[in-house]
């Protein structure tokens, strides 16, 4: 489904990723965890075709990735920028017009679940509500790949739990693979099938979350803490 083959990504003065190999399959929710600057966001941007690898290849459904892989990938950015002149509904309609796979009914269901006012101007939304809008726009698409970069950032801790539960109901795991980067590990732990730890641009470990609990008797935070020790 998604293959990263010996991928290195160098920026001006830093190396974000060092020859990583990943194979991600449909039907799973992957958690990409690591400290700030470890390479999580870079990995998602590479899969979304929004940056290019310095070395190595990335394929989604055997297609080499570039910007136009957007037809198969729904990407939620960590950035909090939208077209402020639109209302929530206009933003949904605009996104719906750009992606043929956008499901308007699903978008409406998510909007109601997220309790977003369709007439509110995006520029007047709170950070939390902008976060909800981002989730809505990402999950309303019926694409094989969903990438979510810090989807819970900015959300009130009290509502995170209900939103995480809602996420599951809006994902079609028969046909989709979801990759989430987050610092809110405890909140998403129940959601994840596999966890991938990135440290200093390298894959520090990959585990099935159930196996981690049963075989290692650890939760993700404990596992991550051990890796980072």
């Amino acid at each position: 489904m998604i293959t990263l083959d010996h991928v290195t990504k160098r920026y001006l003065k830093t190396t974000a990723l060092r020859g990583i190999n990943l194979h991600l399959e449909t039907g799973k929710i992957y958690g990409l965890i690591g400290s700030n600057g470890s390479g999580k966001s870079t990995t998602l941007k590479l899969i979304a075709g929004l940056i290019q690898p310095t070395k190595g290849t990335i394929k989604v459904e055997d297609i080499p990735v570039d910007r136009r892989i957007a037809s198969k990938v729904s990407y939620l950015s960590e950035l909090d920028e939208y077209y402020g002149f639109y209302t929530v509904q206009q933003t949904i309609d605009f996104f719906g017009s750009q992606f043929p796979d956008f499901n308007h009914e699903k978008a409406e269901d998510i909007r109601q679940f997220m309790k977003l006012d369709s007439e509110s101007k995006v520029k007047h939304l709170s950070k939390g509500n902008r976060g909800r809008l981002k989730i809505l726009l990402t999950l309303a698409r019926e694409v094989p790949v969903i990438l979510m970069d810090e989807p819970l950032s900015g959300l009130d801790p009290m509502v995170r739990d209900s939103i995480v539960k809602g996420l599951i109901s809006f994902i079609d795991l028969e046909h989709q693979v979801v990759i989430i980067t987050t610092h809110e590990i405890k909140e998403v732990e129940t959601l994840l099938d596999e966890v991938i730890a990135i440290k200093d641009g390298e894959i520090a470990g990959q585990y099935n979350v159930d196996d981690l609990r049963i075989e290692q008797n650890m939760n993700i935070v404990e596992w991550m803490t051990r890796i980072y020790e």
Partner: peptide, 14 residues
């Protein structure tokens, strides 16, 4: 400039 992730995340050709 700050919305390139929105503008470029689009299946339409350049």
């Amino acid at each position: 400039r700050k919305k390139l992730h929105l503008w470029l995340h689009n299946p339409l050709p350049g």
